[in-house]
């Protein structure tokens, strides 16, 4: 397995991405290269699960618990899944102005400043 070339990645082929930032950047690149259908389902699901985790004090489903359930379901590592949720805005480019029907406007701003995050959602709830 080889890490593809990336502008900010000068790690050797045999070195795992060491910093969290590197991993998030690489995930961002990979998610951007997913086909539209795969991107959409992954984003819709992740956004939905962030809402679940945001209420972990009530529903007891922490990010870790949700990861334990969904990593095997999706067949992806818990580490990847955890980053998809924690760095949702960057990885899914939520600032690109696209309207995603099922997403709650409160969702955005997890890792970036809230700003006008509400604008990229459906105005009427």
């Amino acid at each position: 397995m080889r890490i593809r070339n990336h502008p900010t990645n000068f790690l050797s082929s045999y070195t795992e991405l060491s910093s969290r930032e590197d991993r998030v950047n690489e995930l961002t690149r990979l998610v951007a290269s997913l086909p539209e259908a795969n991107y959409t389902i992954l984003r819709a699901l992740t956004a939905h699960l962030i809402e679940i985790v945001d209420n972990a004090d009530v529903n007891k489903m922490t990010a870790r618990n949700v990861g334990i359930v969904f990593s095997p379901t999706l067949g992806i590592p818990a580490g990847v899944f955890s980053l998809l949720m924690s760095d949702f805005d960057q990885i899914f480019h939520t600032d690109d102005g696209r309207i995603m029907p099922l997403e709650n406007s409160d969702l955005h701003g997890h890792t970036v400043s809230r700003g006008d995050a509400s604008l990229d959602n459906i105005p009427h709830s």
């Binding site: 397995m1 080889r2 890490i3 795992e16 991405l17 991993r23 690489e26 995930l27 990979l30 870790r64 990861g67 334990i68 990593s71 992806i76 590592p77 818990a78 580490g79 990847v80 955890s82 980053l83």
Partner: peptide, 13 residues
Amino acid sequence: FLQVVGKDIGSLD
């Protein structure tokens, strides 16, 4: 995608 977290980190949880 698996490579991003590496085998160890990916299987931590």
